[in-house]
């Protein structure tokens, strides 16, 4: 199964709505709740990143019987130094993002922790692509 969502940069009232939809779908498919939690926590952190940093973005979800793959592509400023961005505590978030309870430099490490495969590519001035996979029978 394949699903697409659009994410609006800067719109915090909608941040998380795609993750919420994916959670509903996975619940309907009777996926193990521990797997669902790992996926939606990673996806929600990634969705908030797009809202916080990019102008707009897209989420592609591919749900198979053995794995769930998520791709988040955005048009935005990009990440100049991915290694630095992956370090816990490193953040470039605005005051607005911090007011929302994010921006402490925990998002990307938390996404990495929750998924089985993780790939982050970025081009400064163009945007960022994050792909991650969770295997359903990995536990």
């Amino acid at each position: 199964m394949h699903f697409n969502f659009e994410v609006e940069g800067g719109n915090f009232s909608k941040a998380g709505s795609a993750s919420s939809e994916i959670k509903k779908i996975l619940n309907q498919l009777n996926v193990d709740y521990r797997i669902i939690k790992r996926i939606v926590v990673a996806l929600y952190e990634a969705e908030v990143n797009v809202v916080a940093h990019a102008y707009r973005g897209w989420i592609d979800a591919n749900i198979d019987t053995d794995k769930i793959q998520l791709t988040l592509t955005d048009e935005g400023p990009g990440i100049p130094d991915i290694e630095k961005a992956m370090k816990p505590g490193f953040s470039t978030a605005s005051a607005k993002v911090r007011e929302m309870g994010f921006g402490a430099g925990m998002g990307l490490p938390n996404i990495r922790k929750n998924v089985d495969e993780f790939d982050l590519k970025s081009e400064v001035g163009k945007g960022t692509k994050l792909e991650f996979t969770v295997f359903i029978n990995s536990e």
Partner: peptide, 23 residues
């Protein structure tokens, strides 16, 4: 800090917070 809440592995804790918004 919501990112901190998202790192919890425990199931179904109750949350005490001063952050009051949709997120």
């Amino acid at each position: 800090l919501m990112s901190d809440v998202l790192t919890l592995d425990s199931n179904n804790p109750l949350l005490i917070t001063g952050l009051c918004n949709l997120q």
